[in-house]
Amino acid sequence: MHHRTVEELMTRDVVRARRDTPFKELVRLLEENDVTAVPVVDDLDRPMGVVSEADLLRKCADQADPTGRTPLPHLEAWERAKAEGSRAEELMSAPAVCARPDWSAVEAARLMESQRVKRLPVVDEADRLLGIVSRGDLLRIFLRRDEAIREEIAGDLLRRTLGLDPRDVSVEVRDGRVTLTGTVENRSMIPVVEQLCRGVDGVVAVSGNLAHRTDDTPDSPTGT
């Protein structure tokens, strides 16, 4: 199976900020390039952190409300320091959470989820910036055509990888949802087939309507 890598999904032409980039220039970078965040790099082009709209908005939220309708928000010390910052290195979220170009979309998505970030700078072996991958970039794998998914499952996965006869198992894909119908030799093979199908790029869900000829599971009367 071919899994699209971060390198295939990432944006290569990355808008960068330097550690001394001033606040107003950061706002201008976001506005002019229609992005919501930029990585902050050092002199060797290595990501130090990321400045997002949320980071910059603290400056606005920390101002007194001229209408007097809302009180100043309570800020932790680190949040107060950001709100009072004027350069990228003072405003950014750091350290930068980065990905490698050979990672799969699953690896990148899990890191985003665990670190609660919306994008990952992508770096090489020397930690130099290569690109940036966002949630939207990772979701592009689900735009894959149903026919391409079906061909990969029926050909690469079932026939070549698992050695199943295509006459025994049929594959239908609609809007990324895979339906498997047919018969496999052993009952223990069914969850293996379904799990492998779930790992194919673009698959949203798998429904198994598979029967088996032999029950080889440990809890079966004839299992070992």
Results as ranks from 00 to 15, higher is better:
V27I: 14
V173G: 06
G155W: 08
E76T: 14
R198Q: 12
T67P: 06
R100G: 05
D42G: 13
R80M: 09
D102K: 02
L75S: 02
P121M: 08
E152K: 14
D20E: 10
L56G: 04
V6F: 03
V106Q: 09
G68E: 10
I141N: 00
L210E: 08
P73R: 12
S188V: 02
S220A: 15
K82W: 04
E90I: 03
G223A: 14
L29E: 03
L139F: 11
R87H: 13
A94K: 15
D102T: 07
L120A: 01
K59C: 01
D201V: 06
S104I: 02
E125V: 11
V97F: 08
R187W: 11
V171G: 01
D201H: 08
G136Q: 07
L9P: 02
V106T: 09
D175F: 09
S93V: 10
E194G: 01
T5Q: 13
S134E: 05
P22H: 06
A88C: 05
V27L: 15
R46V: 03
A108Q: 02
D45C: 08
L111C: 00
G182V: 08
D34T: 10
P166K: 14
G223R: 06
R16Q: 13
E151R: 15
A126E: 09
E172I: 10
E90T: 06
R159A: 13
L29Y: 06
T161D: 13
Q195A: 14
G85R: 11
V204Q: 10
M189E: 15
L129Q: 04
P47A: 08
D215M: 06
A83L: 05
R150H: 10
T21G: 06
L56S: 01
R119H: 03
T217Y: 03
S220F: 01
L180V: 02
H74Q: 15
R144Q: 08
E185W: 05
V97G: 04
R140G: 05
Q115W: 09
R144E: 01
T179Y: 05
R18I: 00
R19C: 01
F142Q: 04
V173H: 11
P66Q: 02
E7M: 10
